[in-house]
Simulated assay, not measured.
Amino acid sequence: MKHLRTAAIAAALFTTPLAAYADQVQLRLISQEPGGSWYSYGSTFGEIIEASEGAHKLSVEVLPRGGGMTNPVAVSQGAADLGFVSAAAAVWARDGIGEEFKGREASNARAILGGLQLAYTTIAARRDYVERSGLKTFDEMVASDNPPRFVLKPAGSQVPILANYMFEALGSSLEDMRGRGAITQISTAQIAQMLRDATADVYIENSPVGQATMSEVTLTTPMVFIPASQKVLDHMTQLGAPEAQMPEGSYPGQDGAYLTSMTPTILIANADMDEEVAYQLTRALVEQRERIAATFPALADWNPEAGAQPDQAVIELHPGAARYYRERGWIQ
């Protein structure tokens, strides 16, 4: 009988998947509020990471909060292990640029994936407002004695800081425009309704093509995309948001390609993440590129090899990610 029990245990060991004996590692991935593209990406990225093979059995909790300005600090300080950020915000956070990051630099964040997608800074105005006011450019709107009612996301998103830089290029600021009664900052879920109700005139956003809120806004309210001057675009380039063309036909109401500034999205990790964990999840995400592209058209142009390079990864690579990229021959 003892021999039979021993044989049964041995058989169970041979039939139990090896993954069951891998080290269990719980990861927290910070995204943003529901309705944003990063929130949508989080679930799929989490599923891919959890299905990955390697020395660890990885599980992922997607945190449905955060934003462009919150996530670099959250990951750097260990409140999250992984997070989506814009490249510009990652640089601002690393270097302590701006009041948002003064004294809380994100020096402990490292890149996992670079160049996931391009996020375009858009200035969209209700068509009836433009026709009624006669203000057709961003520069004219800022200089007007009766400026439009701008609506943008609250603090925690990178949109307010980008808007501040745009106002700054024209001798103003977010605080100055707020003092003139021209700024409303509100949750993403309420923006489309404000524009439909004509309680806001101009929507400033920074997002990839197809982002849910911008899509809803342009489908439910006649909008036009407002150009900014070269002076504004040059100023944004100096601050890590280079000039780019949002492709023609990206949204209803867009007349031709839209000249603006952009920021690429990257996936970062805490620098203290175990190297083998970072290697395993990097490999899994890169090797599931086709699934990611099929699920999210906005990521269809993601090139993992290009994303591993300094101009798209932007900040220092995590050693685990760098090891995988070296194995692929993509970096030295």
Rank of each mutant, 00 (worst) to 15 (best):
V277F: 08
S250A: 15
L170C: 07
T213A: 09
M223N: 10
D197A: 15
Q185H: 05
S172I: 05
Y279G: 02
S229R: 03
G253C: 12
F167Q: 06
D176M: 01
A182V: 13
Q190Y: 13
I183C: 03
T199V: 14
L259E: 07
S172N: 13
D234L: 04
D197G: 11
I268L: 09
L239N: 10
Q190R: 04
A278E: 03
T221S: 13
V224Q: 12
A189C: 09
Q254M: 09
V159Q: 00
M273G: 01
A244I: 01
A257P: 15
K153I: 12
T220C: 06
Y203K: 04
V277H: 01
Q158D: 09
L170T: 02
Q245V: 07
A278D: 03
A257N: 13
S173Y: 04
A244W: 00
T265S: 05
Q238V: 10
M236P: 08
T221F: 06
K153P: 11
Y165P: 04
Q254N: 12
A169S: 15
Q158G: 13
Q280S: 02
Y251T: 06
P222F: 08
T260W: 02
A241V: 04
A192F: 02
G179K: 03
M262G: 12
V202W: 07
G256I: 07
A200G: 02
A163I: 02
T199D: 12
M177Y: 11
T260L: 11
V209K: 11
V151E: 03
P264M: 02
A241K: 00
T199G: 07
L267H: 00
D255S: 15
I268G: 02
T188C: 07
Q211A: 12
A189D: 14
Q211D: 13
P247R: 08
M262D: 10
E248H: 12
G156H: 02
A182R: 05
P247H: 05
V151W: 01
Q193K: 08
E168M: 11
Y251I: 06
